[in-house]
Simulated scan of single mutants.
Amino acid sequence: MPHAPLHAPALSVGPPDELTGSQAVFSTAEFRQRVANIQKALRPTGAEALLLTGPENIFWTTGRQTAGYFSFQALVVPLSGEPVLLVRQLEMTGAQASTWLTDIRAWQDGEDPAQALGALVAALGLRHLAVERNGWFVSQALAERIAEALATVRVSDGSGLVEGLRAIKSPAELEAIRRAAAYAQAGMVAAIEACREGASENDVAAAMMAAAISAGSEAMAMEPLVSSGPRSGIPHATWRRRRMDAGDGVFLELAASHDRYHAALMRSAWIGPPPAEAQAMMDAALRALDAALAAMRPGEPCAAAHNAAQAVIDAAGYNAAFRKRIGYSMGAAFAPDWGEGAILSLFSDVSRPLEPGMVFHLPATLRSYGAFTVGASETVIVTNKGVEPLSDLPRAMTIR
């Protein structure tokens, strides 16, 4: 069966041509190279095209971004030629403005997007489709309907193909992440300054977000983490109007964004002198972070950084206070997560070697669960010789 042309008429009338790429975050050449890299990686699979549904992977491939990604969208990347994007009708204008794509199709409200996808695949004449099975924004019910709509097509697993390419950032991506790091530092400086007896967690969160946004940050893929007193000993707790008292620890973490690329930063503060145990744990966390950063060199496995940090923590006797990975990849992100932890972790037994252009966030935290959390973090770029931390903010606990 011959393939239908990839530039067949769209299923609906889109916005005027002058909008194309007007809001794109990178040049058309940047995205063409990414598509070419996908096509090269796809060729050995035998599939005729790759189907993407995750917002991060669609964004990375095309620049497509919107707050309306809660509605189903799909990108078909063929072995040759241009990708075809399927979005909700309401999203057509934004899709054209944020991408350089020339073929954008639409499904209508009231229409089953799974059926629209099936019709698109049929119109393109595809017989073998690699599918991103681990896309997190497709419900089980929708996945079942998509499977039914593609029943006549051979489907293979294309999970991880794009993620493997995303792990190493281009110069343009690294520049966006550096800018995001500057916004995050501005937010952290303001948050630390707002920590004082009588101030509320909301006061601190408001100062943090206002400073980061004023510095240039766009929408953050996850809310900042601001917690105080016993609440600071609860992982991933955030502001809930609590007022700070003398003797409270304060946990502060945020990721700011530039063109959807994120950089994160975490610091600790204490209202008055900290207890000896908290200070000892803080010192151990900082030594663990230093050890992890020193272990990060091109060619070393991702596990090396974690193992170095874990050795410091174990020697200090805080194994029970640290039961997690030391870091995770950073880059393009949409809610609910500011990181790329599903792509690459700095953790035991992760054997992928570090390469220049990889970016990681390393939160070195130690917790007395339900009492306090202390530590610090850095977002770093792997270089030819080691790592480039993207913050120059002191890591020591701030006493307020």
Rank of each mutant, 00 (worst) to 15 (best):
D283A: 15
Y369L: 09
G158Q: 01
A49S: 12
F360A: 07
V153A: 01
W270H: 15
S22Y: 00
V155L: 10
L101R: 10
F72W: 01
H7D: 14
L19Y: 10
A285I: 03
W60R: 02
R240Q: 11
L225A: 15
R400V: 14
M296R: 01
E148A: 14
V374E: 00
V153Q: 09
A342G: 15
R395G: 15
V138K: 04
A320K: 08
A376H: 04
A219I: 10
E56I: 13
R43F: 06
R241D: 15
T45N: 08
Q96H: 05
T99K: 05
I213D: 08
A320E: 10
N307F: 00
V77P: 01
D203H: 03
T398H: 12
A396T: 13
S348R: 09
A130N: 06
M208E: 02
Y318K: 00
L286K: 00
E197W: 04
I146T: 06
S170D: 08
D337R: 03
E18D: 13
L6G: 04
F137D: 15
L86K: 04
E175P: 05
A278V: 03
D283W: 02
E193Q: 12
I343G: 00
L174S: 01
Y328Q: 13
P363T: 04
E82M: 11
V35C: 09
V250D: 05
G110C: 07
V153D: 07
I168F: 03
G357N: 02
F322I: 07
A264C: 13
L85C: 14
R241I: 11
A97T: 08
G125R: 02
T102Y: 02
I104C: 03
W60V: 08
D290L: 06
Y69G: 03
Q73M: 14
P113K: 02
F31Y: 12
V35L: 07
A205G: 07
V76C: 14
L174E: 00
N202L: 01
A263E: 02
R395N: 09
R133M: 11
P16L: 03
M209C: 14
R34P: 04
I381K: 08
D103P: 09
R352Y: 12
Q73H: 14
E300L: 02
H306N: 09
F70N: 10
A182D: 11
D157L: 03
N307W: 02
H306A: 03
G21M: 05
Q33G: 08
S348P: 01
H3E: 13
N202S: 13
D157N: 09
E201W: 01
P273Q: 08
M281G: 06
G54H: 13
A41E: 12
Y261E: 04
V87T: 15
N384Y: 09
P230Q: 05
F72V: 08
A285F: 00
T53H: 09
A67K: 11
A215M: 06
D392E: 15
V25E: 09
A206H: 05
A305D: 07
G160I: 02
I313K: 01
